Simulated assay, not measured.
Amino acid sequence: MRAIWKGSVSFGLVNVPVKLYSATESHDVSFRQVHAKDGGRIKYQRVCSIDGEEVAYADIAKGYETEDGEMVILSDDDMADLPVTSSREIAVEKFVPSDQIDPMLLEKSYYLEPEKTGAKPYALLRQALLDADRMAVVTVALRQRTTIAVLRVKDDVIVLQTMMWPDEIRKPDFSIEGGEVKDAEVKMATMLVDTLAGDFDASEFEDDYAEAVQELVKAKIEGGEIKRTPTSTKSSGEVVDLLAALQKSVQAAKDSRGESDGTEKSAKAAKKKPAKKSAAKKTAKKKAS
């Protein structure tokens, strides 16, 4: 893993120099929009909705749309005046009981690794959190914006989890009617809960959709159902270029010896199929990862 941020945790007069690592990564399947006929990627132009003209990046500004549909244009100078911070401090504001943190507030997770000089105070903070069964509510500046977060311990490592602001949690605007239940129904539901009771083990669950997509793509590649485009997979580029260079070298050698063109065509035909299969395999590996 590569550290994405360096700073220090401060609580009281104790300062713990740390590195921040992203603790999660998404394995969600993503697709590209392409032309069904030839596999070419679909491009989008930056077009103004008023005059219909394409807009250059230099002419694009940030706009804030009001509730009544009016647009407020914000210049670079306006943005420069906004409160931002480059502080490298994770400041502990207070230690709160763990059950007071609503899981809905938690957002992204990061691992905290101590610098060599901070190993002892890091261990001290970790043990204090465990013994008190509390989380540390902190403020931290990430991407030049101050946000609130919590520190907690997971597998002997202190984890920082950023939090949403309270007003970002939506309240349900619906009511549930007809929710009266009978004692016999409650008893039966409780029996069902007891039957399915157990401990959570994340390894018991699999992303069958992603696996199915990978198998489908692999099958199509092995069946030759691929489109070769000028921007085709970078992973196969070196193989194709190397093959072309070898073919040219062979042809040059044959020309110098005066060999027939029929032999060249036969050699190309023999080499073309396995080369395509090799490139396809690399493409499958690239997409699966």
Rank of each mutant, 00 (worst) to 15 (best):
W5H: 08
W5A: 09
S10M: 04
V14C: 08
N15V: 12
K19L: 11
Y21K: 08
E25G: 02
D28Y: 01
V34P: 00
D38I: 01
Y44S: 08
Q45T: 07
C48G: 11
E53D: 12
Y57M: 13
A58M: 12
A58S: 15
D59S: 10
I60A: 07
Y64F: 13
E70K: 14
L74S: 13
S87R: 11
R88Q: 15
E89M: 14
A91V: 11
E93I: 15
K94M: 15
D99L: 14
D102Q: 10
E107Q: 12
Y111P: 09
L112N: 14
K116Y: 10
K116W: 10
K120E: 14
P121L: 02
L125T: 06
Q127Y: 01
R134V: 03
T139F: 14
T139I: 10
L142R: 08
Q144G: 03
T147W: 04
R152E: 15
R152N: 14
I158G: 09
T162P: 10
P172V: 00
D173N: 12
S175P: 00
E180Y: 01
K182W: 05
K187F: 08
K187G: 09
A189G: 03
V193C: 13
T195L: 08
T195Q: 09
A197V: 00
D207V: 01
D208V: 15
D208N: 08
V213A: 06
Q214W: 00
L216N: 03
A219Q: 04
I221G: 01
E222G: 00
E222R: 04
G223Y: 01
E225D: 12
P230W: 02
K234Q: 11
E238T: 08
V239Q: 04
V240G: 05
L242Q: 04
L243G: 00
A244D: 13
A244P: 06
K248F: 02
K248V: 05
S249G: 05
S249P: 04
E259C: 02
E264A: 08
A267K: 03
K271R: 07
P274W: 05
K276M: 06
A280E: 04
A280R: 03
K281T: 02
K282D: 05
T283G: 09
S289I: 11
